[in-house]
Design a protein around this nucleic acid. Structure first.
Lengths: 302, 302
DNA sequence: GATTGTATATTGTTGCCTAAAAGAACAATT
DNA sequence: AATTGTTCTTTTAGGCAACAATATACAATC
């Protein structure tokens, strides 16, 4: 990609890269929340949602204003100037994606077995042209996702989980066990407001917005749905396990392409499931979930 | 504990601390493997088992010799001079444990909710009197075990998983789902040699060695048994999920005390399970496992 | 009363450097 | 043929400085 002369300084160019990144995060959040032009962007609200303080949020908002996506007036805060799903919002979102590039590249290399199981940090720094700090943050994240682990001595080792070609099937088999079982747990319950929120989002996806969404967003939305439901078991181990599987499934998702029709059917499944859950017929819901997860893969989703 | 004047330099004293640690690792391995006085300590073998190279192993062996636990002759390598389960071997093992102290302290504080959910690195450095590097390694490990996660901004957040008082029950409920399900998976199979190895170890524990083992070792042995079995499903997601649960259960294990009788019954369950697995009656084995996991808690083990 | 603007303290990052640890290759020994 | 002893190179860790990002508290404004 870039130069190979070892100079790897942070390309500060003109605008702060960090600010653009933050702007992207805010825009992505706005999209997820289904916000529209004219909606207020309240600092504290955003800060809470993104687990940050107001200071970085403010940076992002200013960058958003500079990009013409938000309008701010003194003492009155910021307001969305463009619809987050519109074309104008794309560049800001791309800033986030660019930040994910190295991650995605590594993921791809591991999936394609272009990397040995054991690697050293220096090797990775050279290969992907990143600083040690960037790499370490990245490795930390990957480690948390569970597909790399530190060796006692030097270096890291990739989990076999990921590179194996059966991983996708195995992930499905695993989910087919834990998700229905979670619903069938004694204390399972899903608050009404959660059901409402989930239904609303699924319906929004169902009619209309599907076409505008990226694969990443579609996938993310699906994960959120399932995670929200498994949370109802009140047992964090189920949630954790699903999260982990999903973070690995996401790696595959980058490669699959969208099948909009299959996805429609998929979302319909979700809506039906919500109906059953609402009436607290959990045994039935568990069966429904099991069937849902046994459906043939739709663009790597489920 | 130690001084509070902020001076926290690596106390090199006389002997290298690292070497003692390595010696402890070797001794612990020798115990696990059931080695006896006179057995050879082959460098490459040890290096492979501990995922290290020969250089650090050699350091550990020298430290072991200095402690009188191993005897070495030129060009003939090292030989165990004491039985690893004997009292003489205790100090070396303690060196490893000392290294775990901070980890255990943090674990205890989290379990007892003496720490807030969100913490900063500086706070932890002050509280536990460790350098940043030590802390980062520790946090990395804890993050890999899944009970802390980095926040986007400053600081870290502990998972609710751990601090909740129901965690133990929830871990059990989760295992009661995945372990039998793993055995019931279509392609489940356990190689004969694995069964033999597991049976051998369980029998060794059953008669005799139980009394000599520490709680940590007993727990470790139990985990290994279950992990080895779930591995038979050939689906790494099951194994990973169990590993993660176990690493959290280990935190509780520090607090529970051993009930030797309950453990005998427990090991008997294991042996019976192996018998059924050997004859490939997997459906039956799955049921047996389910029952095994529903037994009342025995000193936090199962 | 909620939200924004601003100032300040705290926290984490980065780069540089030296030292120490680990890995790899090969010769020597049994 | 396997294992140990030795040497050499690569890789990581530690500490410290300056710096950048973040959090927090409080005043100002709507």
């Amino acid at each position: 990609m870039s130069s190979s002369d070892g100079s790897r300084q942070r390309s500060d160019k003109n605008g702060s890269e960090r600010a653009e990144h933050l702007a992207g995060l805010i825009m992505a959040l706005a999209r997820r929340e289904g916000m529209k032009t004219g909606d207020r962007l309240i600092e504290q609200r955003l800060a809470d949602a993104l687990d940050l303080s107001r200071a970085p949020i403010r940076l992002g908002l200013k960058a958003l204003e500079a990009a013409g996506l938000a309008r701010g007036e003194p003492h009155r805060g910021f307001v969305l100037a463009k619809n987050p799903t519109s074309g104008a919002a794309q560049p800001a979102l791309a800033a986030v994606r660019r930040n994910e590039q190295v991650y995605a590249t590594i993921a791809g290399d591991v999936l394609a077995s272009r990397l040995p199981a054991d690697v050293t940090e220096a090797e990775l720094m050279r290969r992907y042209d990143v600083t040690r700090a960037e790499l370490q943050r990245l490795l930390g994240r990957i480690a948390a996702e569970g597909w790399i682990a530190r060796l006692p001595g030097y270096g890291w080792r990739f989990a076999e989980t990921v590179s194996s070609p059966e991983a996708q099937t195995q992930a499905k088999a695993f989910r087919a066990v834990i998700e229905p079982a979670a619903i069938a747990q004694p204390g399972f319950a899903l608050p009404q407001e959660v059901i409402v929120r989930l239904r609303e989002r699924q319906q929004r996806v169902f009619k209309g917005e599907l076409e505008k969404m990226t694969i990443g967003e579609i996938f993310h939305s699906g994960c959120e749905f399932h995670e929200e439901i498994i949370r109802g078991a009140g047992n964090p181990f189920f949630l954790e396990a699903l999260r982990r599987v999903n973070s690995i499934r996401r790696l595959f998702a980058y490669r699959s392409f969208a099948d909009r029709d299959g996805m429609r059917r998929h979302v319909r499944d979700h809506l039906r499931l919500l109906d059953v859950l609402e009436t607290q017929r959990y045994a039935e819901a568990a069966k429904l979930m099991a069937r849902h997860l046994q459906r043939p893969l739709v663009a790597g989703l489920s």
